Simulated scan of single mutants.
Amino acid sequence: MTGEYQHWENVPTRWKDNDVYGHVNNVVHYSLMDTVINAWMIRTAGFDPATSASIGLCVESHCEYKAEVSFPDAIKVGLRIGKLGRSSVRWEIGMFRASDGAAVAEGHFVHVFVDRHTRRPVEITGPVRAEMEKLLTP
């Protein structure tokens, strides 16, 4: 399963990520997905969220929880693209406990790229699209 992802990041959990039940709260999983996607966009695809003419808006998200994870565990996060449309992209994310490789969660985000000012869909082009194509699953 881990071989299906083209990009990886190891993310440490934080003391504050644990909830009253002693495990990382579900909202942290969504935050990790969003963080890994946007870090990849900025570092790899050269996307500048502050100045780009277009921005990606999340129109759908989902997370399926597989196992608990708790501080001080680290989470190995895999990223791939399941579908790349004209103006939208479906990011697929796998989260695994770094210590033993156990699947923690799988999820997805769908972003629609829109003009920063008009909020109308725009085509994903140039270096951003070229880098996204490298993450497409066969």
Score class of each variant (00 low, 15 high):
1 M>H: 10
2 T>L: 13
3 G>E: 15
7 H>P: 00
7 H>C: 03
9 E>Q: 15
10 N>P: 00
10 N>D: 13
14 R>T: 05
16 K>W: 01
17 D>R: 03
19 D>I: 11
20 V>I: 14
21 Y>R: 05
25 N>P: 05
25 N>I: 03
25 N>T: 14
26 N>L: 09
26 N>A: 09
27 V>F: 04
28 V>H: 00
33 M>I: 01
34 D>C: 03
35 T>D: 11
36 V>Q: 05
40 W>V: 12
41 M>P: 07
43 R>L: 07
43 R>P: 00
44 T>H: 10
47 F>H: 15
47 F>V: 08
48 D>F: 05
52 S>D: 15
53 A>R: 15
56 G>F: 04
57 L>N: 07
58 C>W: 00
61 S>G: 06
61 S>C: 13
63 C>Q: 12
66 K>A: 15
67 A>E: 11
68 E>I: 06
70 S>M: 10
70 S>P: 04
76 K>A: 15
76 K>G: 08
78 G>H: 06
78 G>V: 15
80 R>T: 13
80 R>G: 11
84 L>G: 10
85 G>S: 10
85 G>L: 08
86 R>F: 08
87 S>I: 06
87 S>N: 12
88 S>Y: 04
90 R>A: 04
95 M>Y: 06
100 D>S: 12
101 G>E: 06
103 A>E: 15
103 A>D: 10
104 V>E: 00
104 V>S: 04
105 A>Q: 06
107 G>H: 04
107 G>M: 13
108 H>K: 03
109 F>L: 00
113 F>V: 00
113 F>A: 03
114 V>N: 00
115 D>E: 07
118 T>L: 02
119 R>Q: 13
119 R>C: 06
121 P>N: 01
123 E>F: 04
123 E>T: 15
129 R>F: 09
132 M>I: 05
134 K>D: 09
134 K>G: 11
137 T>A: 15
